[in-house]
Amino acid sequence: MLHDELWRANLQLAESCLAHPFVQALGDGTLMADLFRTFIAQDAFFLRAFLNAYALALARSDDTETIATFCELIGGVQEELKLHHVYAAELGIDLGSVAPNPACRAYRDFLLRTAWHTSLGETVAAMTPCMRLYAYLGGELALRCSQQHPYRRWIEAYSGEEFERLAGRLEALLDRVATDTREVRDSYRYALQCELDLFSGAFCS
């Protein structure tokens, strides 16, 4: 299956994300609150672009099954954003006035350019890594997540069955609407690179 092949072909990038000092500190609970706060703000900014990209992909879908899947996936992002809003309220983040850092801007620009300007297949290929990567990171970090872990809610959200199910739905869609082209491979790989850059951007802020 294409989704599996793309994931395996780019596993090194996913492993670099897991090994990133930011993710490691998030996983062992030593991440400074300020850095987590910045990360949540940047991630929430990016997720709004992710919602737009789903909506654009939905608009160019012509069968009801694909449309229904995108509706479901949009619902998933809205749930994810609820978590960000809870964190924003607790940490005093004004989500309406987040200034994106360069890594976040680059990822947003790439995603929206892809969604507006390229094929449905390339768009889904640009969106799948985000879902699969977070399911992977959530699963790995959950293995060492205690009851008292300061970021337990975050880890549980991404290691939960529902998030895994949605990642699987998107991957199934990728297999259905995308073909194995240079553009699709490039889209998938670059999205993972953007994810890695996002962690670096959050860590350096």
């Binding site: 360069p102 801007r105 680059a106 947003r108 620009d109 790439f110 929206l112 350019r113 507006w116 300007h117 490039d186 670059y190 690179q193």
Partner: peptide, 20 residues
């Protein structure tokens, strides 16, 4: 050849703006 990441970030910005 593939665009350099710097070139890509510039043109992604242009194209995102073109539509939005």
């Amino acid at each position: 050849i593939p665009p350099h990441p710097t070139c890509r970030r510039y043109t992604d910005f242009l194209m995102r703006c073109a539509y939005t």
